[in-house]
């Protein structure tokens, strides 16, 4: 298993964002993580990486604790999470992906520079290598992020909405890249929004709405019934409980 999550609960201000999530993702799958807004998709990625405090539950990656396999995991945050006015070139950003393995102090070797070079080549931004990042289009920014993750040479990739607001060419380039990763036996978990392209892009599906609604191979999981339960499903009691918690606390002094 690339990722196993057991009974993970994450709450912000006692409002549950993830509730008792159980998830097993086999190695080598290209996984789409789909759910409505506020379903906790991004939070799930961050919880896997230990970036948000969990109330309970456990995560193992390749059967180990995240701290022990950190170098085998690459994370692609949302594009909007960084300041693109930062003084750096595309090459600088992509090279950041090699920091984890290159160490923090010694000069970068030719090996790391080559890795960055190859990663840029793979996503087709080699000609932009020396361009300042504040001159990039949205799609180019996303490709730079993808190249940075590739440069990490990880076995597991966690991507937060790489397809958000990118041009068609970039979308194509990302999909090709994901396919190549799968051929190399890598596991990729991608937060995705567009239900239309889900069956085309991925071969494994996680439907998430605060809890995992369905997990499995695309053909079995991408069904009307499951989607109905994810998007229109009844979560009334859960909602009522969190509402009641909120009300009770508001009533107290």
């Amino acid at each position: 298993m690339a990722i196993s999550i057991r009974a993970m609960t994450v709450a912000y201000q006692r409002k549950p964002v993830l509730w008792e999530v159980n998830l097993d993702i086999p190695t080598g799958k290209l996984v789409g993580l789909v759910g409505p807004n506020g379903a906790g998709k991004s939070t799930l990625l961050k919880a896997i990486l230990g970036m948000v405090p969990t109330i309970g539950g456990s995560v193992s990656i390749f059967g180990l604790d995240y701290q022990d396999v950190r170098s085998r995991v690459a994370y692609v945050p949302q594009r909007s999470s960084v300041d693109w006015d930062f003084p750096a070139t595309v090459r600088d950003v992509v090279t950041m992906g090699t920091y984890g393995s290159a160490g923090w102090f010694w000069p970068l070797t030719k090996r790391e520079r080559n890795r960055a070079h190859e990663a840029m080549e793979q996503v087709g931004i080699l000609d932009l290598a020396n361009r300042p990042i504040n001159q990039l289009s949205g799609g180019q920014q996303q490709r730079a992020f993808l190249a940075r993750a590739l440069a990490q040479q990880a076995d597991l990739f966690l991507m937060d909405e790489p397809f958000a607001a990118v041009d068609a060419a970039t979308e194509r380039a990302i999909v090709d890249c994901l396919r190549r990763l799968q051929e190399l036996g890598k596991t990729t978990l991608v937060v995705h929004h567009d239900l239309h392209t889900v069956p085309e892009y991925f071969d494994y599906l996680v439907l998430l709405n605060v809890r995992t609604v369905a997990v499995g191979p695309m053909a079995e999981t991408f069904t009307d019934e499951n989607l109905q339960r994810t998007y229109g499903g009844r979560l009334t009691i859960l909602d009522e409980v969190s509402e009641a918690i909120r009300r009770r606390e508001a009533a107290r002094p």
Partner: peptide, 20 residues
């Protein structure tokens, strides 16, 4: 000495966190 750490934590704190 900490140039790389500073650069990555300044540009992308989330990636920095995921790298430990």
């Amino acid at each position: 000495l900490l140039f790389r750490l500073l650069r990555i934590a300044t540009f992308d704190p989330q990636l920095a966190t995921s790298l430990g």
